[in-house]
Design a protein around this nucleic acid. Structure first.
Lengths: 188, 188
DNA sequence: AAGTACATGTACCACATGGTACATCGCGGA
DNA sequence: TCCGCGATGTACCATGTGGTACATGTACTT
């Protein structure tokens, strides 16, 4: 048991800076668009020695876990069911999501999310659970605007394809058009 | 100039085994689902010492280039414009492509292709050109069955999304359903 | 003032990686 | 027969990586 000095807080293993440190690490991962930053690189970006990273987090796996959890928290806040105005048409909602996703400042998060997809299909259970949570989150959100779970499902696949194309080509128009056409045919 | 012993063939830099060796390396990459195999791992799988890999290919970059080119060649053969029976309905053509892509034996190629996508969005020019060629190839093929370039474009995005979902979840049904619904609404 | 627990720096280590140096082998041609 | 050149093995190296050892500083409690 490493913690347990009864003086200040109770069960916070590492008192103060750690929370903020996780945030800075996550920012670094987002900046790099991947979790595959070496501790040395990370320490450079974050401004904390590798020594201290290991000190606070124990090992790399735990560091990644903390960063992923924090990212999940952020995305949960951003895409929870109530986070789009209720009266939006399906088209407006879909377009809002697309613009948000392809905004330049979102690029790092998108890359990181794709990186986690890769980890998931390469067998990482943690990455898989991250993926599943995102799917749930988006499904809940979408059900406010789309008529059925099937529609939400189809939408998610198109959206992921569009995002992939966007990342590779840098073009957001093909994705936008595909989504628009899908939504308008959806209305039938 | 390393070649040029006028005796046997002319411009084959490395006479005999090299071609076959590329094939075995590509098979190893496909088996691993990524180009990121170390020379040591590769030499183990392929049954050729790292020493000889470097001997034949000069360096890793060239090895990767040879393997990518060979993969392109294989995919060109598999998905060139005439490679699906001409009379197929759009639905049948789309389903055929999906079954082919999600067949267990295709898994490695699919993974490798996705790995190249990642390299492309991380800035690899070679991977990007690979991606572009695949897009062209599939577009040509699809135009035999779909009414417009727009439709082909939309299809490709859905298909890539479906493939991504398939890789992460292992389920081919969501993708199949999404594609079916898309095609049938396409007919309008 | 002394003790205790955390904070931090400097070296260091084992291991994997891509690649090289050097020596040897074996075979076809003069 | 000997030469020369590709094929091959063994050892080696520089670099990057995650992580540890050890020593020291710092601050708060008693």
């Amino acid at each position: 048991m490493k913690s347990g000095t009864k003086s200040k807080p109770e069960d916070l293993q590492k008192p103060a800076n750690r929370g903020e440190l996780v945030g800075r690490c996550l920012a670094a991962f987002i900046g790099a668009g991947t979790l595959d930053l070496s501790l040395d690189q990370l320490s450079g970006v974050v401004g904390v020695s590798k020594r201290m990273l290991v000190h606070y987090f124990g090992d790399r796996e735990n560091l990644e876990e903390q960063a992923m959890s924090l990212l999940e928290k952020g995305l949960r806040a951003q895409f929870s069911s109530g986070s789009l105005p209720a009266g939006l048409t399906p088209m407006a909602a879909v377009m809002a999501l697309w613009e948000q996703t392809t905004a330049p400042k979102s690029r790092g998060v998108l890359l990181l999310t794709m990186d986690l997809c890769r980890r998931a299909w390469n067998g990482s259970e943690r990455a898989r659970s991250f993926y599943d949570e995102q799917q749930r989150l988006w499904t809940d959100l979408l059900l406010n605007f789309l008529p059925s779970a099937e529609a939400a499902n189809d939408f998610l696949q198109i959206f992921q394809g569009a995002a992939l194309v966007y990342l590779v080509t840098g073009e957001s128009n093909p994705g936008r058009s595909a989504l628009q056409r899908w939504v308008s045919r959806q209305a039938k």
